[in-house]
Amino acid sequence: MEDDGRLMERVQDRDADAFETVYDRYHRLVYGVALRVLADPAAAEDVTQAVFLKLWNEPSLFRGGNFGAWIARVARNRALDAARSRAVHAGADLPESLPADDALEETALARIDGQRVREALAQLPADQREPIELGFFGGATHEQIARQTGLPLGTVKTRMRTGLRRLRNALEGAVIA
């Protein structure tokens, strides 16, 4: 299987077939994230289309590293933009560009099995899972989560970190080759 980095080089050269392969590989991830954020299939399809056409028109936005990790963050940010434009709330964005060595680090976990991850997430205690999901998919800042849950700010962050560390450790078993 041709690796994502090589495919994206071909996309830079306006190779529509390479773009189609990238689409086939990642449209479920982009759409799934957008759907989770927006809870609206039509709006999630709009975001999916916008993300992929942006990728086609400006492939240099991807600066190497783990492509799935990058496009998932782009999808999340664009979906939250769409949600905010429907006047939901203002929130925080994920850094989309990672320093090159951080991105390389993640290449080791390039292929993540969605099903295994869902199981690993489900096994987190609810008080760790919920702030993580609210923050990532809901676009809520930790301050908003603290207000919603009535917990001190520091506690929300600590639970996020504890949950992410647990998930990170569980990931070792969720990586395909």
Partner: peptide
């Protein structure tokens, strides 16, 4: 260390 866990949260929503 945490970056892949965040990526994994995204993958949990993969259609």
């Amino acid at each position: 260390f945490l970056q892949p866990a965040v990526t994994a949260v995204a993958y949990s929503a993969e259609a």
